[in-house]
Simulated assay, not measured.
Amino acid sequence: MKKKILFLCGHNAGRSQMAQAYFNKYNTNENFVGLSAGTNIADQVNSACIEAMKEEGVDMNDSSNFFPKVIDEDENYYRIYSMGCNVKSELAIYDDLGIDDPAGQEGENIKIIRNQVKENIIAIIDDLNQNATN
């Protein structure tokens, strides 16, 4: 059974969706899978984030995979990373990534946020591969 790495934010519409997409794109360790969720979900994924990810060759238009979803607090997550929005959960958050909210942002600001997400995800994958019990 794969160990679930959860990327948690308030709306599950931007940062956490990008984190899920990057994690599953770059992770080569079959023991892990990236998921995303929110605590107060939006109606849809941020279209500016979808467009920014498209530039990276990541298609987040698959609404069966990329859609706002509420955190399942009964789920057994291996690690939970919050995205920087001070979300509260009954589950233990492993680390907060401190990434700005893309809501209401556009253009270069979205790309900066996207790149911050990517850098964090690559570091998380490296850490999991070096330090986690597989």
Rank of each mutant, 00 (worst) to 15 (best):
T39C: 07
D101N: 12
A21Q: 07
R114M: 11
A92N: 14
N29A: 13
V58S: 02
H11K: 13
V33T: 14
Y77Q: 09
Y77M: 07
Q105K: 15
L91A: 06
G98T: 08
S82N: 11
G14M: 00
K25I: 06
Y81Q: 08
A42P: 08
N29G: 01
K118Q: 11
H11G: 09
N65T: 14
K3T: 12
C49M: 15
Q116L: 08
I124G: 09
E73Q: 12
A132P: 10
E75V: 09
I124W: 09
N61M: 05
Q116M: 13
Q116A: 04
A92W: 04
S47C: 10
G14Q: 06
I50Q: 05
I112L: 10
V117T: 00
N129A: 00
M18C: 04
E108I: 04
S89W: 11
N120G: 07
Q44S: 11
V70T: 14
V45W: 01
G57N: 04
S82E: 14
I124Q: 08
I112S: 04
S64Q: 03
F32V: 06
A21F: 01
K118Y: 02
G10N: 02
G104Q: 05
Y22W: 11
K69C: 02
L35W: 12
Q105T: 12
E73P: 06
R114D: 04
I93V: 15
V117H: 00
D43H: 08
L97Y: 12
I5C: 03
